[in-house]
Amino acid sequence: MAIIFVRTIIIFVVIVAALKLMGKRQLGELELSELVVAVLISDMAALPLEDIGIPLLNGLVPVITLLCCELLISYGSLKSIKFRKLMWGKPSLLIDNGKIVQQELKANRFSLDELTESLRKKDITDISTVRYAILETDGTLNTVLYQSEQPVTVSMMNIKLPEKGIPIAVISDGRILKDNLRRLGKDEKWLSKELKGRNNINVKDVYYMTLDDAENIYFAAKESGMKAKQSLPGDK
């Protein structure tokens, strides 16, 4: 039992490190080789856990080998377009200028039902509104609608709005995020001044506070210490 426990910890650490080194991708967006590696890694790593008679190295060596191969394939794909095409293929145009490309559907073994289902998942129920539909190499379907079918944007209405910028957390669960403060061009003096304006609340009692480029602040105190005002006029 103890052996399985220790092996599980070791394999878990190795797999997490391996997948982390593979890079940030959600499972659904893995390319083919990455999916193969992810499946194989989990399978191979489980072997020494199922049978303690199998040496731990029989699980670790394949995992590390697969990781190294995947890193090299990714690097090759980055450096060479030909290699990338060979490994991952190229995107397919399933709808071209409003016309369903039946040959591409056949070549990708993508049925009409699957096409309409994928479009419905994107809230597109009328296929005639789609100008282009592209089947990406990771299997996802992306669409470009006709201009007249696209949602209205602010620029189409000739309305000028100030840029909001991305809110960045400066306090999270009672801890000051100094790197983020610095990135926003602020310091702890500024932060103390802001907290003074909120009934002099202590940093430790702040649950979440964000600031964006336009100086908009989002503030939330911890529920146990609801001493400060939750928000001031001008805050979000």
Partner: peptide, 19 residues
């Protein structure tokens, strides 16, 4: 580039150890 060099080195080490 560093990761890739490390990957090649690791593969070489694993192959060396198995041999």
């Amino acid at each position: 580039m560093k990761k890739e060099i490390a990957a090649i080195a690791l593969l070489a080490v694993i192959l060396g150890c198995t041999i």
